[in-house]
Design a protein around this nucleic acid. Structure first.
Length: 270
DNA sequence: AAAGACACCTGGGAGC
DNA sequence: TGCTCCCAGGTGTCTT
């Protein structure tokens, strides 16, 4: 489920329970995720102290003195903290057991997630080519215009490309294009600077608002049902094909773009 | 170089 | 009930 706001919400939820803790064990029940979990990961983290928990794009980075554990939640992954002795359910693939007696548990039915290692001072191939963070100043109208130049790809697929900007998944791509009044199929290179500027602002606005809401509805990452407190974003278009536009009441259109469900208002988006 | 198809997985819901 | 088919919040890699 995770798009960037969910990943950031997860980061904020787990960070207080991880920072400063020492790893006492790593239990891997299913090593076959998107990429195999490295055989030597236990050796890397055992008895090591977690210095900080950061996020880069949709990757969570648990920083250790010698490097970082990189966790990606894929399509269906989630993380939560449990008592280390709590029995694992079917899709609970990995436990990072902490000196506190708790474990950071990864559950991921579809196994598109990943748990990898990046040595200190190196840049993992999966992180090296990522575009800027959407909420940073380096993601701006000038940058996006430069990227879009002469590109014929549909703008929706373009902003979902993590080499252009990280963190814009299918739901938010739909929502953000609606807010910006841009048709999802419009060629990236044929959009005016003024409209790209609006798009940049909408991306920042929608994502930061979603993160805020995630923060306010944040539940227990400890115990309970283990479900992170995913926010309830009121969606304008995603999942609303054939329903009326919230602005003009025109029937929203649903198409497929790059094998992904795409919903837009034919009246509001040009 | 850029764009599109395909790949990796499981589960849930629709339709028969 | 049970089967088949399609869909799902990601994204790297292969093919044109």
């Amino acid at each position: 489920m995770p798009e960037l706001p969910e990943v950031e919400t997860t980061r904020r939820g787990i960070e207080p329970y991880l920072t400063g803790e020492t790893v006492v064990d790593l239990v891997v029940r299913q090593p076959k995720l998107r990429w195999p979990i490295p055989d030597d990961l236990l050796l890397k983290v055992k008895d090591q102290r977690i210095a900080s928990v950061e996020r880069r794009g949709k990757y969570l980075l648990l920083h250790f003195p010698a490097g970082a554990v990189m966790i990606h939640l894929g399509m269906s992954g989630s993380l939560y903290l449990v008592a280390a002795e709590q029995p694992a359910a079917y899709h609970d693939h990995v436990d990072l057991v902490l000196s506190s007696g708790r474990a950071l548990r990864l559950t991921d039915p579809r196994r598109f997630g990943s748990v990898l290692w990046q040595d200190k001072g190196t840049s993992h191939a999966l992180l090296a080519k990522l575009g800027p963070e959407p909420l940073s100043d380096s993601f701006n109208a000038i940058y996006l215009t430069q990227c879009c130049k002469a590109r014929k790809q549909a703008i929706k697929q373009f902003i979902m490309d993590s080499h252009v900007v990280v963190g814009v998944g299918n739901i938010y791509a739909n929502e953000v294009l609606f807010s910006a009044g841009i048709h999802p199929k419009r060629q990236a290179g044929k959009i005016s600077v003024a409209r790209l500027s609006i798009l940049v602002e909408e991306i920042k606005k929608v994502l930061s608002r979603a993160i805020e809401q995630g923060g306010t509805t944040l539940k227990d990452f400890v115990g309970g049902d283990g479900k992170p407190g995913y926010f309830k974003q009121e969606l304008q278009v995603y999942g609303r094909g054939d329903q009326p536009c919230t602005v003009c009441e025109t029937t929203l259109k649903e198409i497929r773009l790059g094998q992904r469900s795409t919903v837009y208002c034919p009246e509001c988006q040009r």
